[in-house]
């Protein structure tokens, strides 16, 4: 039960390895359409994992996480299109702008807790969306920014998907490192009982702000990749739609689990991809699935995995 030995069981490593190999095989063997679908899935997995970090460990529910996805996309896009930076260098500006946005908005939001915190995040995201939507001279407004780079850096569909898979792996490794650190423990402590944490000498808002900025920066990585994937950035990236999708992914995948965001992103994108085979009513299907999960599997797919014996419940947040 030690924190340091709280590492992945061999069974989990095996499942993870099989998943990676399976993904790469599907990516290489089933054509460009599948590769594109997988690339989007993996980018959304990074995005959902960043929200999961905030929700499962910091117990902070954000209704505005897409703000940082959008800022990531625009930070990268503007660095290329307006500042004329080389693409490789511009990639840094996505997470940077998202992290900076996280710092500014986070400093505001952590002043309140629970539903009031959530409403502030919503307000901040709406402000972001409106600025991106209205500031024509810089952001291109509702027509977005297009044509500033070849989509996917000019990589083939399959190669781009492999690249995204690598970035996802790096992000998850960093997140795992964070979770199993003193900082991770402090974030969980404040999330679980801010009074206790405070009485022990921890300033809760400071810890929450750090968690918020880190989570925003990871969302910015996802946004940057998404802009590179599309070769374009639109205000919708910061809109409520993306926020809701990320929230749904975390719930489907499993709150209070490290893998919740990733699993949720996989389930969500696969459902959306295959839904047309079953029904023309995607929204209805999603609603029903969400209903079933919240009632029957409140801890999501991840809890199902734990029940199947894939490691101890050691990754509980």
């Amino acid at each position: 039960m030690s924190l340091l030995s709280n590492q992945m069981s061999p069974a989990r490593w095996a499942v993870l390895l099989a998943a990676v190999v399976g993904l790469e095989l599907a990516n290489r063997l089933t054509g460009a359409g599948t590769s594109l679908m997988l690339a989007e899935m993996l980018i959304l997995a990074i995005f959902a994992a960043s929200l999961n970090l905030l929700m499962s460990y910091g117990h902070m529910v954000s209704f505005g996480h897409a703000a940082f996805f959008g800022l990531g996309a625009y930070g990268f896009t503007l660095a290329v299109s307006r500042a004329g930076l080389p693409v490789e260098l511009a990639l840094l500006f996505g997470p940077l702008l998202a992290g900076f946005g996280g710092l500014v908005f986070g400093a505001l939001c952590v002043r309140l807790t629970e539903i009031y915190f959530a409403m502030l995040t919503l307000a901040c995201a709406q402000i972001t969306y409106t600025v991106l939507f209205q500031w024509y001279d810089v952001t291109g407004g509702d027509t977005g920014i297009t044509g500033f780079m070849p989509a996917r850096f000019g990589l083939s569909e399959a190669n781009f998907t492999t690249l995204v898979l690598v970035v996802l792996a790096v992000c998850l490794a960093l997140m795992a490192r964070l979770v199993a650190s003193p900082l991770g423990l402090a974030i969980r402590a404040v999330g679980q009982d801010r009074w206790r944490a405070e009485a022990l000498g921890l300033a809760p808002r400071r810890v929450q702000l750090v968690a918020f900025v880190i989570s925003a920066a990871f969302a910015g990585v996802a946004g940057t990749l998404f802009a590179a994937f599309q070769g374009a950035a639109f205000p919708d990236y910061a809109g409520l739609g993306f926020t809701l999708e990320a929230l749904i992914m975390v719930v489907l995948g499993g709150l209070h689990s490290f893998w919740g965001g990733v699993l949720g992103a996989v389930l969500f994108t696969q459902l959306r991809h295959w839904a047309p085979v079953l029904t023309g009513h995607w929204g209805l299907l999603l609603g029903i699935v969400l209903l079933i999960f919240v009632i029957a599997l409140p801890h999501g797919v991840a809890a199902l995995g734990a029940r199947l014996g894939l490691g101890p419940k050691g990754d509980r947040a």
């Binding site: 924190l3 402090a186 022990l200």
Partner: peptide
């Protein structure tokens, strides 16, 4: 911290006491 083990709780207390929670 209700969702943590007793050991994790106590570890968190020592980390907070060390002042190096951001480490």
């Amino acid at each position: 911290f209700l969702q943590m083990s007793a050991l994790e709780n106590m570890t968190a207390a020592f980390i907070i006491a060390s002042g190096r929670w951001a480490s």
